[in-house]
């Protein structure tokens, strides 16, 4: 049996003087998987991903990385394997130049010289901020500060990339950049885990969707399975709505069409390729 890249075994976590945020969560994430975690605010998503790089330690259960329990591994050491981009860029930006900000993580990992410069340049190129290398981060708008925070984690080139609500507060161009980053990381074989409230982003950019409700995993499967009509009651119990193509597809009796591409493909007629395809087979694309 293969060892998963990340394994959470019956993880529970309670904040001091607070609620139990994660309850008995078991997950296996394989190398190269793209996983999006969705759920209402307070469902335990952020708490869960903060276990992946040791910021939080489970009250009970275990977190394993490459089959090894990370309980006693320092966060600074885990940062070389798991990069976590926070939701609010203003909680991390401090440098006077965009390039220095992006170089902070790799420098902490011991990267120097030409390799450091190459990583910074590549990360800025990936998020479309190459022309802003000398700009003060606080002279950028919120959308671009978020992209900068993302670049600062990309430059660490960790095998696992965790993104906390990367599309929130982004304009259309920013969302397109984030989608490209996820696609590129997946193409490189990196594991991407994201938290999102953006159902379109979740359905179109990830191979696996995990739905959390009240600290537990309520659903776990492909976008086609999670956004299929049969799962809607569970989604709505988690205060989530399926993406529009899934609703339209179900209304037209085309089966599960979580993305616009899947919907178009399932449509009978000149625009679609689904003429003659039986309903329910469109799947995720």
């Amino acid at each position: 049996m293969n060892v998963p890249l990340i394994e959470l075994e019956a993880v529970s976590f309670t904040y001091p003087d607070g609620p139990t945020a994660v309850i008995d969560v078991t997950l296996r994430i394989e190398p190269g998987e793209t996983v999006v975690i969705i759920g209402q605010n307070g469902s335990g998503k952020s708490t869960l991903v903060r276990h992946l790089n040791g910021l939080l330690r489970p009250g009970s259960g275990r977190v394993l990385l490459d089959g090894h329990d990370i309980h006693s591994v320092h966060v600074a050491a885990l940062a070389a394997r798991v990069g976590l981009a926070f939701q609010n860029p203003d909680r991390q930006l401090f440098a006077g130049r965009v390039a220095s900000e992006v170089g902070f993580g790799p420098r902490n990992l011991g990267v120097r010289g030409a390799e450091l410069e190459a990583r910074v340049a590549a990360a800025l190129e990936d998020v479309g901020l190459a022309a802003e290398a000398e700009t003060n981060p606080y002279d950028l708008g919120l959308s671009r500060r978020k992209l900068l925070a993302l670049a600062s984690v990309l430059a660490m080139r960790t095998p696992v990339l965790v993104l906390d609500e990367p599309t929130t507060g982004q304009d259309a161009r920013g969302v397109a950049r984030v989608r490209a980053v996820v696609a590129s990381a997946a193409q490189e074989g990196r594991t991407v885990i994201a938290i999102s409230h953006d159902m379109r982003f979740a359905a179109e950019c990830f191979g696996r969707v995990v739905v959390m409700r009240a600290g537990k995993v309520a659903l776990d499967g492909s976008p086609a399975a999670i956004f299929a009509q049969a799962a809607w009651p569970e989604l709505r119990a988690a205060y989530l709505e399926p993406p529009l193509p899934a609703v339209v597809g179900a209304g037209l009796g085309l089966g599960s069409t979580p993305t616009a591409a899947a919907l178009v493909a399932a449509l009978p007629g000149p625009a679609g390729e689904g003429r003659g395809r039986p309903p329910g087979r469109a799947g995720n694309e």
């Binding site: 903060r50 966060v75 940062a79 976590l84 926070f86 991390q92 993580g105 600062s152 660490m156």
Partner: peptide, 13 residues
């Protein structure tokens, strides 16, 4: 939250 963000970028605390 700031400490968490910087530790996630490898800052040794």
């Amino acid at each position: 939250e700031i400490v968490d963000a910087q530790r996630s970028r490898g800052m040794d605390t």
